[in-house]
């Protein structure tokens, strides 16, 4: 499985669900074979169930989408356990979150004055999360161009991993308003939300993350199982809100 490309993986894994994503995004009707793998935005892949699944984005521009796809594929690389982050819908998830209420600063106190503060005081940026992401992507690309002469998504996988590690460890400083480590943490945190949230949000396609760890999903009625599954694996096909809607 390791060396198979994404499309082969998607064609060979037959399961239920996830067709709702295509219906929800829609728009692009091109088919998988006509779309080069790795092309950033507006791409359509075959859904595991056979229908087309769009990777169309509403908030992210094409270069931003390329950045996010590369980053989530480094965070969640394709392997025996799951497809890569992009093919699990994590980039689509991030795009929709940024386009939606959370990205716009919902449930966030946005009044000034603004001061940097210390990390234990939490988020203090005057930017909404969507603006913060946009600035963070631009700052990362600027850093990559300055040090490696290319945008992040054009770097080799090894180079991308190194840039992300440096951001994570606080070893790089970005020019501009967005601190590299803070952006990294938000990016990683949001990607993990997408990978593990219910598939209704566009990520965790085919419940890949839930299957990987053995989380059975949403019905969750365990009155008897709490006794009968002590020290015993509970092997079921996970159910999502999407499946039950």
């Amino acid at each position: 499985m390791k060396n198979k490309n994404r499309r082969d993986f998607l064609k060979t894994v037959g399961t239920v669900g996830a067709t709702g994503i295509a219906a929800a995004v829609g728009g692009d009707t091109s088919v998988a074979g006509q779309s080069p793998a790795g092309s950033p935005a507006g791409r359509v892949l075959l859904d595991p169930a056979g229908g087309p699944v769009s990777h169309a984005y509403t908030f992210l521009t094409a270069p931003e989408a390329a950045f996010i796809e590369a980053a989530v594929d480094r965070f969640i690389p394709a392997d025996d356990l799951t497809p890569g982050g992009t093919d699990c819908g994590v980039a689509v998830f991030i795009d929709r979150q940024l386009a939606g209420a959370w990205g716009s600063g919902d449930r966030t106190y946005m009044q000034g004055p603004w001061q940097k503060g210390v990390p234990t005081q939490g988020y203090q940026s005057p930017l909404t999360p969507a603006e913060f992401f946009r600035a963070g992507i631009a700052a990362t690309n600027a850093y990559c161009r300055k040090t490696l002469q290319k945008d992040f998504d054009r770097l080799t996988v090894e180079q991308q991993n190194k840039v992300l590690q440096d951001m994570e460890q606080g070893r790089v400083t970005f020019e501009g308003t967005v601190p590299a480590q803070e952006f990294f943490n938000l990016l990683l945190g949001t990607a993990m939300q997408g990978f593990f949230a219910d598939p209704i949000y566009g990520g965790n396609r085919d419940k890949a993350a839930w299957k990987m760890i053995g989380f059975p999903g949403v019905i969750a009625i365990y009155s008897e199982h709490i006794k009968t599954y002590r020290n015993k694996k509970y092997d079921v096909e996970p159910k999502s809100i999407l499946d039950l809607s």
């Binding site: 019905i219 009625i221 365990y222 009155s223 008897e224 159910k239 499946d243 039950l244």
Partner: peptide, 17 residues
């Protein structure tokens, strides 16, 4: 077993053994 008989129904009840 309500979920076994009608999978995906909304009743939050485990059943009576």
């Amino acid at each position: 077993d309500p979920q076994a008989f009608i999978p995906g129904n909304r009743m939050a009840f485990a059943g009576i053994v």
